[in-house]
């Protein structure tokens, strides 16, 4: 049970990370992709990335929360590491 809720929370966090990265201006610029045109709402997406942890805490899933908390930076790194493909649409 703890495993399942952790993985679910991590998947949600990863989605938020993927979006922040996709719209990251410095990353796009550094890898010669065209700038992202829409509104970024970075703060909102950062908050969203932490919501799963908050939910686990509220549900008193302590073990799941600590695992999510520990894996949070791992996920961020994992999402940030690969080079963006040049084909990404603005």
């Amino acid at each position: 049970m703890a495993e399942f809720s952790t993985l679910l929370a991590l998947a949600a966090t990863m989605a938020a990370f993927a979006w922040i990265r996709h719209t990251d201006p410095k990353n796009r610029h550094a890898h010669k992709a065209s700038p992202y045109q829409g509104k970024r709402n970075t703060t909102l997406w950062w908050l969203l990335s932490m919501v799963p942890g908050g939910v686990l805490l509220l549900l008193q899933q302590n073990a799941a929360f600590v695992m999510w908390f520990a894996a949070f930076p791992l996920l961020g790194w994992l999402v940030a590491l690969p080079k963006p493909s040049k084909a990404i649409k603005p």
Binding site: A2, V66, P73
Partner: peptide, 22 residues
């Protein structure tokens, strides 16, 4: 809990191993 990462079986161990390797 935070040093050993042994509290939730395989998944917590895998996460702690990965963090150590990182």
């Amino acid at each position: 809990v935070f040093h050993f990462g042994l509290f939730a079986g395989m998944l917590s161990k895998i996460i702690w191993l990965s963090l150590g390797l990182a």
